[in-house]
Amino acid sequence: MSTPTRLSATLEKVSTGAAKLAVGIAVLFFLLPLVGLLLRTPWGELGTELASPPVRSALWLSLVCSLAATAISLVFGVPLAWALARWEFPGRSLVRALTTLPMIVPPVVGGVALLLAFGRRGFAGRWLDQAFGVTLPFTTAGAILAETFVAMPFLVITVEAGLRSMNRRFEDAAATLGARPWVTFRRVTLPLIAPSLWAGAALAWARALGEFGATITFAGNLPGRTQTIPLAVYLALENRLEAAITLSVVLLAVSLTVLVLLRDRFMPNP
């Protein structure tokens, strides 16, 4: 670039100022709702609220369902990510689009679709019922299924991106040295993609923990069975605003703690 003229210097100043303003607004936009929540939190009653059986059962259910959904996402999502990144097959982009569909459709729509497929009257659900006596709607398994549906895409696309960007020379070297594919995957590929694996798992877990629409549509809302924290918050808003705020703060604290732990341990600051 040549010596800046006065005009371009002014323009630069203005654009830097505008960028700073945009950054400030963006930060405030995320900060203010948090402040609103914390200002209204009845801190004195937090302990009593946390100890109450309905809150404890919702919290426990949230943890169980979201962790189960993350585990299922890992078991099925990593192979899927591998296939999308490494296999050449017709319709691959179609499969990828299908995988990311739950990220773009509203969760309630996802819940309706799940009902129509896996519900008692759904084509797959009817078969499950007749062959195994399994019905998913209104069960904890149904809540886990709904959470997996919306959470797994986050894992798949993150892991796929990791697989695509990793340096494959190490895999080639391992193979040249006689390592079997599974050994290469476990000893070379997995450690190399570990950051994206953990990031994907964390994203999927956070998404599952906050899931509302698909869960309430497909699994319903019953304390102790399908009422996770987000559902409990929504119900509490009906008549106990303080309880809703408390539950929200608890969910916030749990997610933040786990994400910070994960970050320190597995995702070093770039």
Partner: peptide, 21 residues
């Protein structure tokens, strides 16, 4: 012992008309 507690009255109708309840 209900299988679900809907958030409003219309939410009761849905599962019944869909045949899930």
């Amino acid at each position: 012992r209900p299988v679900s507690e809907a958030v409003d009255v219309k939410g009761v109708l849905g599962p019944v008309t869909l045949g899930e309840a």
